[in-house]
């Protein structure tokens, strides 16, 4: 029942996108987000949509599965569409009923703004779908490395993030198991008054906390036993390295930026 939540939704694979360096993917997303906000006419949006579809192909995941990432935001998208259709005025009038009109600019803005939202969500899910959380935090750590010089504990933050991400699936599995075990003992989480239902969470929360603390203790002990002392002087097992793929991504970024810059109104 809990598998449906998409956190750490990484799908292992060997596609172009999977094998590209997380740093270039992260930098590209920042660029892409900027370009999405710069796009302002049919041509530029068409270019961005076409590019996103192509990136989807490069991930070798099914399009349907990628588009599922839109599920959490579809209400927002629908809301945006309705708002723009009703409230944005200008251009030809397509429909009139008393004071109520649907006008050209309203339709246009509805399409553009919802596309903007959709593109941002899809492209960032392409990142999380093709990059393991560990790679992702490592990429972040390296990109933020320079801030370490001004006293930001970059390594510690990155470590905390990777541990948290690493344990999300474990804790979800654990939660699933505990819910099942208490259900088997007749617990009922879905009926009764609000107070009753809140109370019924206790048999889940307590074992979950106990197990989280047990895991944290075990982990701390295991790390210490293996000589972990913080970030200073640590070497890496897997060194991130740029390859021709990252050159490709950089080239695509430059090309995309020029295209959008040229054609935007």
């Amino acid at each position: 029942m809990l598998q449906n939540i998409a956190i750490g939704q990484y799908v292992p694979g060997h596609s172009f996108l999977h094998r590209a360096d997380p740093r270039s993917k992260l930098l590209f997303i920042i660029l892409f987000a900027t370009l999405v906000f710069l796009a302002n006419n049919t041509v530029t949006y068409a270019v961005l949509v076409a590019f996103t579809l192509y990136a989807g192909l490069l991930s070798r995941l099914s399009l349907g599965y990628i588009l599922k990432s839109l599920k959490p935001v579809w209400i927002l998208i629908v809301f945006t569409i309705i708002l723009h259709i009703f409230l944005t005025k200008g251009g030809a009038v397509y429909f009139q009923w008393g004071w109520f009109t649907v006008e050209e600019r309203g339709i246009q803005q509805a399409i553009f703004i919802s596309l903007r939202l959709g593109l941002l969500v899809v492209i960032s899910s392409l990142l999380t779908l093709t990059t393991s959380p560990i790679d992702l935090t490592e990429g972040l750590e390296r990109l933020l490395g320079p801030f370490g010089r001004i006293g930001v504990p970059v390594h510690e933050i990155a470590l905390m993030m990777s541990i948290a991400i690493r344990f999300i699936p474990t804790l979800m599995e654990e939660t699933d198991k505990i819910i099942k075990a208490q259900t088997a003992r007749g617990a009922n989480f879905t009926s009764g008054s609000l107070v009753k239902r809140a109370q019924s969470l206790i048999p889940i929360a307590i074992p979950l906390f106990v197990s989280a603390f047990r895991r944290a203790e075990d982990l701390a002990l295991a790390m210490e036993a293996r000589g972990y002392r913080g970030g200073v002087g640590r070497t890496r097992l897997h060194k991130l390295a740029f390859s021709w793929r990252d050159a490709g991504i950089a080239a695509a970024g430059v090309l995309l930026a020029i295209t959008i810059g040229w054609w935007r109104a």
């Binding site: 654990e174 505990i178 075990a181 208490q182 088997a184 048999p203 074992p207 106990v210």
Partner: peptide
């Protein structure tokens, strides 16, 4: 139904 490691469900 007694799960594996059932002691993890005590609360």
């Amino acid at each position: 139904l007694v799960f594996q490691y059932p002691e993890h469900q005590l609360f």
